[in-house]
Design a binder for these strands. Structure first.
Lengths: 180, 180
DNA sequence: GAAAACATGTAATTAGTTACATGATTAA
DNA sequence: TTAATCATGTAACTAATTACATGTTTTC
């Protein structure tokens, strides 16, 4: 139920914001970490209000409602952030396919893995571009954004290397090599 | 909708199996890649039968039904396996928390990251145990299982290193260091 | 005779997606 | 005046989880 905590956290960062404002942040900054749809977000803000974890602090034109976290909301958020262990993502579509690669000819299995390597390499390059555009940025948000970005860089590099190694395992020569 | 394809794939591997048999494989072999509940699996087998991607090939005692993939099912499975690009897992609970680490004192943020490093190291050790128990195993299933295991080893190593690096970034000394 | 294992199914709930539906304000 | 942006809300559907519900066969 992390959308709830993402919303609380964004309100804690911003002080106050409307659903529309939050949606903008989800689409800009959290798109690759915790996407949310408009429908889901407005529904969640309603539930958070009922639970008294946030409250409407201002109403503006066009039906705009500005929300802020309550004391209870802040507490709930910090409990989640530091006390609750992050749930690891158990489902992995790609590894599921690897499990079944024995059902197709080795050459097609190899192609699959090399395709994954290429996709990872592409992602890596895209992130390197983001990294470059970030040099010179200051502030605490830049620090944590940089840390998350570094995760992506290492993840995509790992995936690229692994997939190329795995493709090697499927060839006669590769099967004799040691992993690493 | 990968549960559908996981079920098709397992039936393709096995030739035929009951819902109960498949559930055993999900719990043993696919637990860390694509978990499924009993309720979900039986429901899916019903849908797959309606869609004529599988069919009941035998009925036994205790209401047992043995399923096998149809020609259409095999086709659908192979299309999924090789043609459809794997969907990358977009939501990452841990990175979401990293995004908000600026909201708590640096020492608590550092603790959070070192906790993640420890969890990753623990996972790595657990997988190394699995790896050892696998040496000597033969056959194509062992090859692909080994490839998936290697992903887990590299992933956990990456996460451990990254989290320790990130914790370093949050200290005065660490902030001056270069990433890598 | 009791427990374990085999075997299937449904109901209720939650999280998330897509689509539908409406309207106000601002900038070109 | 019209298009873009701002702004909110509901409905229908899918995937997944937890709980409920039942019964048979084998093994100790």
């Amino acid at each position: 139920m992390s959308l709830r905590h993402a919303a609380l956290g964004l309100l804690a960062l911003r002080g106050e914001a409307s659903g529309y404002d939050l949606l903008g942040i989800f689409n800009e900054s959290l798109e690759h970490v915790w996407p949310a749809t408009q429908s889901q977000l407005y529904t969640e803000l309603g539930k958070l209000t009922d639970a008294e974890l946030v409250q409407v602090v201002a109403e503006g034109g066009r039906g705009r409602k500005a929300y802020a976290v309550t004391e209870a909301g802040r507490k709930e958020f910090e409990h989640w952030l530091l006390e609750e262990p992050p749930t690891t993502n158990r489902r992995n579509d790609m590894l599921l396919r690897v499990f079944f690669l024995g059902l197709v000819p080795p050459e097609q299995a190899r192609e699959f893995l090399l395709g994954r390597a290429a996709a990872a390499a592409e992602m890596h390059e895209r992130l390197r571009g983001v990294e470059e555009s970030l040099t010179g940025e200051q502030g605490p948000l830049a620090v944590h954004g940089r840390i998350a970005l570094e995760w992506g860089l290492r993840y995509s590099a790992m995936q690229d290397e692994w997939a190329r190694w795995a493709a090697g395992q499927l060839t006669a020569e590769g099967a004799a090599e040691q992993p690493g």
